[in-house]
Amino acid sequence: MTTPVDSGRWLRRLHDGAPSAVRLVCLPHAGGSASFFFPLSKALAPAVQVLAVQYPGRQDRHREPAVDDLHTMADRITDALVAEEPGPVALFGHSMGAVLAYEIGLRLAGAGLPAPLRIFASGRRAPSRYREERIHLRDDDGVIEEVRRLSGTKRDLLADPDLLRMFLPALRADYRAIETYRHRPGALLDCPITVLIGTEDPVVSGSEATTWREHTTGPVDVRTFSGGHFFLIDHAAEITALLATLPNSTSLPDLMEHH
């Protein structure tokens, strides 16, 4: 663990939660920011307190250097959580954020803190499943092409040269972080995991999703949605309903088994 950091730089409370609200730490995809989770936070408040993670190198942190090593990023986010009030949290991560959720869960246990109530791993294969991906080594046009393929960014952003100049360094750093990531064999979580995938997602297959079972001693269930990598946007209502059960998340409803 590193020296504790200013948690307010990393963790954003987008809406007020009730004093007894369960805390849900939301970790964005590569190139993503805390504001991606604004609609979810609004829908879940005040029963669930969303803590949306803001990575450096974007939005109000655009002057800070982006972090291009996923283990370093997990260290820093965990330090921010440790600096918060004690108590259990749930973790929701999409794409790169799903692997960060796994690594943060391991670090919380290593710090003697409670295991996550549950990890929601969305749009990402298990930490031990790798593909040869070199998007971070492409030129700018090549990186933008990949973002368009996954439909993760509004076209007006991709068409604005000034915004792109601000956006691309952080995006490239994120791709480098997730593409060079390797998990540390033998490390196991001790919490339930809900894996969420899209039927047409090009970056994760069903078998790669079920391999999450090898990374925890807790139960793992895989929920499948229609759609591609950003299926969670089209299925926002179902995902919100699922996350709203967090105070009683030991028994999740079968909201999405057949989507």
Rank of each mutant, 00 (worst) to 15 (best):
A244P: 05
R131D: 06
T224Q: 06
L157V: 15
T72S: 06
F231T: 05
L91I: 03
R23S: 07
H29I: 03
H183G: 05
G31K: 12
R138S: 07
D6F: 12
E179W: 02
L163H: 13
S249M: 01
L150D: 13
F225G: 10
L108M: 11
L24V: 09
E103N: 08
T217M: 00
D221F: 00
G228P: 05
A34R: 10
I144K: 14
A236T: 11
H94K: 08
T250Q: 06
L168F: 06
D174C: 04
T250R: 07
A173F: 03
E145A: 15
E146I: 06
F38P: 02
T199S: 12
I119W: 03
E179I: 02
P28M: 11
A126K: 00
A80Q: 15
R125N: 05
E208L: 00
R58Q: 14
L232W: 13
A187S: 07
R9E: 13
D254W: 03
H235C: 02
V143T: 09
G97P: 10
L242Q: 06
R12Q: 15
P185V: 07
R58P: 07
P46T: 09
A80Y: 14
T194G: 03
H258D: 10
L188Y: 05
P19D: 10
G123P: 04
V25N: 13
L40W: 15
P88C: 10
P4W: 15
G198H: 01
E132H: 11
T210K: 00
A52S: 15
R134E: 08
L113I: 06
L51F: 10
S249C: 08
P169A: 12
R118P: 03
G32C: 11
P65F: 03
L117T: 15
A187P: 00
Y102R: 04
E84L: 07
E179C: 03
N248C: 05
T245Y: 03
H258F: 04
Y175E: 03
R223Y: 01
T2K: 13
G110D: 07
D75P: 04
I77V: 15
L106R: 13
A74S: 12
S151K: 15
R155D: 12
R172V: 02
A30N: 09
I135R: 12
H94L: 01
T72H: 10
A18T: 09
F36A: 15
R125C: 02
G227K: 11
V82D: 13
T194Q: 05
L27R: 12
A66N: 11
D174R: 08
Q49T: 08
A126H: 00
A98V: 01
W10R: 14
G228S: 09
M166I: 09
L27V: 04
